[in-house]
Amino acid sequence: MRTLNSLTQNLIESLTLLLQQPGEDALQTLEVCAPVLIEQLQEVLVRAVDRRDFEIQLRAVLEVWLTKYPQSSAAETALFGGLRSGGLVSHAQVTVL
């Protein structure tokens, strides 16, 4: 699942570029930019969603729904296949209920 916003992408790209060129210039840049980088990292942390928690919640809701509205094995397989291809569940969690 690709959920990176522009803030996160810019942060990762900037840090990657700085860390690929270790040296005095990179250290000076990090020293100047540290407050902004720390602030952005804190924003990422606040907004971050643990994908495992999301998958567990999704799985629980689907189990309840499938109990109320039973589907054929083929329909369940197609449902989880679609969720997997959309990046909403991992390969390990895809099993027919």
Rank of each mutant, 00 (worst) to 15 (best):
R2T: 13
T3A: 07
L4T: 15
L4A: 15
N5L: 07
N5H: 07
S6T: 15
S6G: 14
L7V: 15
T8Y: 02
Q9C: 11
L11N: 05
I12C: 05
E13C: 01
S14P: 05
S14D: 03
S14Q: 12
L19N: 14
L19T: 15
Q20G: 03
P22K: 00
P22R: 00
G23A: 05
G23D: 06
L27A: 09
L27T: 13
L27F: 04
Q28P: 07
Q28Y: 06
L30R: 08
E31A: 13
E31W: 12
V32Q: 05
V32F: 09
C33Y: 11
C33A: 06
A34S: 13
L37K: 06
L37H: 01
L37Q: 10
L37V: 14
L37M: 04
I38V: 09
I38H: 08
Q40W: 02
Q40M: 08
L41N: 01
E43A: 02
E43W: 12
R47A: 03
R47V: 08
A48Y: 15
V49R: 12
D50I: 14
D50M: 10
R51E: 12
R51P: 13
R52K: 14
D53L: 11
F54D: 15
Q57T: 13
L58G: 10
L58Q: 05
L62R: 00
E63I: 05
V64R: 06
V64Y: 02
V64E: 08
V64G: 05
T67I: 02
T67Q: 00
P70Q: 00
Q71R: 11
S72I: 00
S72H: 00
S73R: 05
A74H: 06
A75Q: 04
A75D: 03
E76V: 09
F80L: 11
L83H: 08
R84V: 03
R84D: 00
R84M: 02
R84T: 08
S85I: 12
G86Q: 07
G86E: 09
V89R: 04
S90V: 09
S90M: 01
H91D: 15
A92I: 02
Q93F: 03
V94E: 03
T95V: 12
V96Y: 01
V96A: 01
